[in-house]
Every structure is written in structure tokens, then in C-alpha cells.
Design a protein around this nucleic acid. Sequence first.
DNA 1: TAGCTAATGTACGAACTAGTACGTTAGCTA
DNA 2: TAGCTAACGTACTAGTTCGTACATTAGCTA
Lengths: 221, 221
Amino acid sequence: MTSVDEPAQTNGRLRDAARTQAEILDVATQEFARAGYDGARVDEIAARTRTTKRMIYYYFGGKEQLFTAVLERAYGVIREAEQQLDVEHLDPVAAIRRLAELTFDHHEQHPDFIRLVSIENIHGAEHIAASAKLGRIGSPALEVIRRILAAGQESGLFTADVDAVDLHALISSFCFFRVANRHTFGVLFGRDLVDPAQRAHYRTMLGDMVIAYLTAERAAD
Amino acid sequence: MTSVDEPAQTNGRLRDAARTQAEILDVATQEFARAGYDGARVDEIAARTRTTKRMIYYYFGGKEQLFTAVLERAYGVIREAEQQLDVEHLDPVAAIRRLAELTFDHHEQHPDFIRLVSIENIHGAEHIAASAKLGRIGSPALEVIRRILAAGQESGLFTADVDAVDLHALISSFCFFRVANRHTFGVLFGRDLVDPAQRAHYRTMLGDMVIAYLTAERAAD
DNA sequence: TAGCTAATGTACGAACTAGTACGTTAGCTA
DNA sequence: TAGCTAACGTACTAGTTCGTACATTAGCTA
């Protein structure tokens, strides 16, 4: 982290539109994730930036658009990470397990993103619905799942008729819940789902669950 | 619904502390679930009640305590419903499937509760942590799971060493995710997880997943 | 039925908060 | 290097929002 006291010089320039915007987005991401949309304070975001509130309105237009920009960038980061997925050289069972593990790691490493998604759902997903960048964007992981499932079904390892979107939802559910509901679950059940000592346990549990589901004998519909 | 125009007479009395408090809690539950803690407006809650804002402060003390009271009542309703669980007359496999299905139904039927839990997690579960009624309260469903698991493991139907709290988390994950993230998931993947036409499909999927996990051959740790 | 208190209503204030009007300057370009 | 404009800062406002001081009364009880 760079000190905030010294003049705004990171690139040797005092004025740098790109840097200012990025810095606003960084701080806004933290603030929205911390307090929710309505709990977040524009003044607080500005104060924790090397620029002023004026610039937030200059570059983003308002609180609502700033939140949308934060979501767009957050989803962009996730997309990029998912595009690095490299599991298709493995056999289908190992590939799915690996993909589930990477999804697990990924959720754990981005709690702010999880919080933003929770917050956006409280608001009916109105921001991403209105965003040109985010409407029906899908997920790169989904394509990977689709291909692995096809291979697994082809080879007879997986029982037929498991849909890629459904499997994605199933894997995401556990990863998301563990991080998103960590606090209430911890208070109610006295167990921290994100306890590092339990990490390997839950990671294995997720993989076991997914593989068991995909490879179980299933009665015909 | 009773009309709000007529004088506040539901029990033949104009003044009824219990009724006034219950009405405030009803409306507050809706308002907090709708807009989140910070998005909720005390004036709005008062306006949609047959009483005034003064009464909210008279009975609950403030917005924060009102939210805590809303959570306490919401968790109470859930507890009561879970105490009605009657699945232990079934064999372990059928019992767990039935329990998963009831959990599924239950989440679907209480979207406001799901939203309140999401909101409380955004705020680090500080309200339920401070509540005398809710600290480490657990869940009646957990005891049921514990007993079914024991029976299933005893009879050899279930592979050993699945913890009740973990299984509860696994089942809840999917049920919770489906309702809580309905909006963002719908926009991103073009699929409504709470679409009534898909209900039976997802309900079965959850049961299949849980049973597959519990009955799969598992390598020793 | 007199009197008391829990229950209720009205009106207001202090603090906060998103957003803006207006003025200034860094640094590129001709 | 003169001038122009994107980038930036200051100071303020209008509206909102939680909370409360003060006044009133329903309805129980002695």
C-alpha cells in the first residue's frame, strides 16, 4: 500500500485520470462490501481516497453508478480468474474435483466479492440487470463444466442428464454459503466455516459431494 | 389483511400493547427484508402501521433493537417449524431425503427470512451475537440430523464420519443459495432458480446429491 | 366513579448525506 | 511558451432521517 499522506504521485504525475478512477473503485469496493449499498457513505469513500468527493461525481456520476462500476469490475476480476482454469487435461472425475476446489479457493479468496453479490441480491440485481457489461454474461467456468460433463457422460463415468448450469449452482452454493453466512452460522452453531484448520476438510467434502452426485447410480426419471 | 383506515380495533380494544408490537414487528420484518438494515426507514415502518413512530421507540428503543427483535422473531418462527419435523419413523435414507426436501420447501416459503439472514451477515451477525435469545441457539433440525446419521451409520447404509453440522451446512447451502442469489443468478445465467416449473427438479437434485454423498464409497482419510 | 398509569399522538430538531455551483491548475499541444 | 481543457478542490445546500420533548387519553382498579 502507498502512503496517503504524500502528494498523489504514483506515476510521477500529479494528475492521472486512470489512477484516480482506479483508486476510487478500490476504496468504493471496500466500503460497499463493508456496509452494503445504503450503509456505504460517499463521503467516507472520498475521505479514504487521495482525491475528493467531487471526483466521484465527475467520473462516475453518482453513488448508484459507482456501485454498478464496482460490480462490473468485481465480476471482471472473477471472469479473468476463471479464464485461467486449466483442468481439461485431467480425466473427467479429477477435472470436476479440481474445478470444484478452485471454485472453493476462489470464493475464500474474494470475500468482498461474495458480499457485493449478497448486497446486489438484496437489491434485486437491479444494477447488473441495467449494466450493459453484465447482462447475461454467464461465466467462463460454465463452459469448462459443460465440456467436462460431456466427456464424463460420453465415457460413462457420469450418470446422464446433469446440466452444466445446475452443477455450477450446486458447487457455488456450498462455496458461497460458507463465506457469505460465516457470521450467523458461527454464532448459531459455534463453528467457523472459514476456520483455516477446517479448510482442507470442507474442500474435500465439497469434492466428495460433487463426485458422489455425478457418479451415483440414479433411477430413470 | 385488515384495513388500515378503520380505527385500531382488532380485539375490540383501541389500545393493545401486544397487538401494536406485533404489528410493528410484521411491518418492520417486511421493510428490513425489502431494503436491508440501512435502507430500511423507521418512518416508513411507522407509516405502514396503524400506530406511530413514537411507539417503535416506546416498545423497542430504536432502529437497532427493532432489527434485533425482528431477527429474534424470525428465528423463532423457523425453530417452531423445525420442531414439527417428523421423519424419524422413516429409514435413514428416506428420512434424510425427506428432511432435505422439507428444508428446501422451508427456504422457498420464507424468502424474507433468507433476506434477513443475508443482511445480518453483511453486518457481521452483530445483532444475533448480542442477543440473549439467539446466541448459540443451534437448530432443532440439527438434532434430527444427528439421530438419523447415527442410525444410518449404525446400519451401515451411510459411510462413516459425516458430521451433523456439516451435513446441515451442505443441505442449507443449496436451499439458501437458490433463494438468496436468485436475482444475480437469473440475470447472469438466464435461469430462474425459483421458477415453479423447475421446483421439483431442484428438489430432487438436492435429495439425490445428499443421498449420493452419504452412501458413496469413500477412501479412508 | 375518581384517579392513576400504560399506551398513544403531534410536532419538532439536530445531524447526517447525496449531490452541486463555482473556482483553480497541471500539463499537453500548437 | 501561450493557451486550452481535462482534472481537480472548496464550500455549500436541500432534503432526509433518526430520535425526542411534550401533550393526551383509554381503560383498569380501588
